[in-house]
Design a protein around this nucleic acid. Sequence first.
DNA 1: TTAAATTAAATTGCGTACAATTAAATTGTA
DNA 2: TACAATTTAATTGTACGCAATTTAATTTAA
Lengths: 143, 143
Amino acid sequence: MEWNPLKLENQLCFPLYACAKELVKKYKPFLDELNLTYTQYITMMVLWEHNSLNVKTLGKRLYLDSGTLTPLLKKLENEGLVTRTRSAGDERELIVSLTEKGVQLREKASEIPGKIGACIDLPTEDLVKLHEILHKLLKQAGG
Amino acid sequence: MEWNPLKLENQLCFPLYACAKELVKKYKPFLDELNLTYTQYITMMVLWEHNSLNVKTLGKRLYLDSGTLTPLLKKLENEGLVTRTRSAGDERELIVSLTEKGVQLREKASEIPGKIGACIDLPTEDLVKLHEILHKLLKQAGG
DNA sequence: TTAAATTAAATTGCGTACAATTAAATTGTA
DNA sequence: TACAATTTAATTGTACGCAATTTAATTTAA
């Protein structure tokens, strides 16, 4: 039995890439109810934790750059979920903050992780291990 | 210590999504040499295994639909790496086949998995476990 | 202290991704 | 046989995702 390193099945990246996409798809019906895309959802998640951050910090947390975030944040601003204001201390920085409406959306969103969890049928042991390895990988590969 | 289910760090999907993106980025310098994007690369990988398939089968393997594949395959056709012809038996099917140039590209590509592997510093045990769990997850979540 | 270097966001351009729809070919069935 | 249902790609429209460049503000250093 020969190991073919160019076989899709033998890659590390491909199952990661495919799993991520399939899992993101599972969020869609739930996120549709909040009128959010997945990327908007994780952005809101960071804001629900921190209330107010600049684009750079937000981007570091999300592994996204301003090319992705700028239009996305303008969208969220149009929806009335966040405000975008320049920092008083440093005009280069754009501060993104939750509005009252943005804060309130958190309650509806809080049901989502449980609903997603119910879709995934893996032993807890695997879930914990997966978490652990992914964070290890992200620490060295990311950034 | 309270478990916050809306914390980014506590999600399963987010590290998967972020890891996949970061890992795909690592391919870029190597793929640039072949003038391929990551999606084009995995498409070629399936073709190097099977030589000739229709779009539906290709899409099933790659977890991609015709909306993504149609323009991508036209690009590969323009580059002279594949041909696109309707099936004689069933005109609905489009058969994608490697050209000689497409076949030859495999040799250059064969160095990539090793180069990527060298970038990832995880114990073999973790790599094997990650593989195993991801395939398990893909089997139930994918499709 | 001002000119060069750096930093932060925005912009541009290209390539995915995918839902929804359309168009054409084939299959199933009355 | 004919017509409805199904199947396969292509198309359309929206939203990322990122490299590369640009613009404006700030910091560094000569």
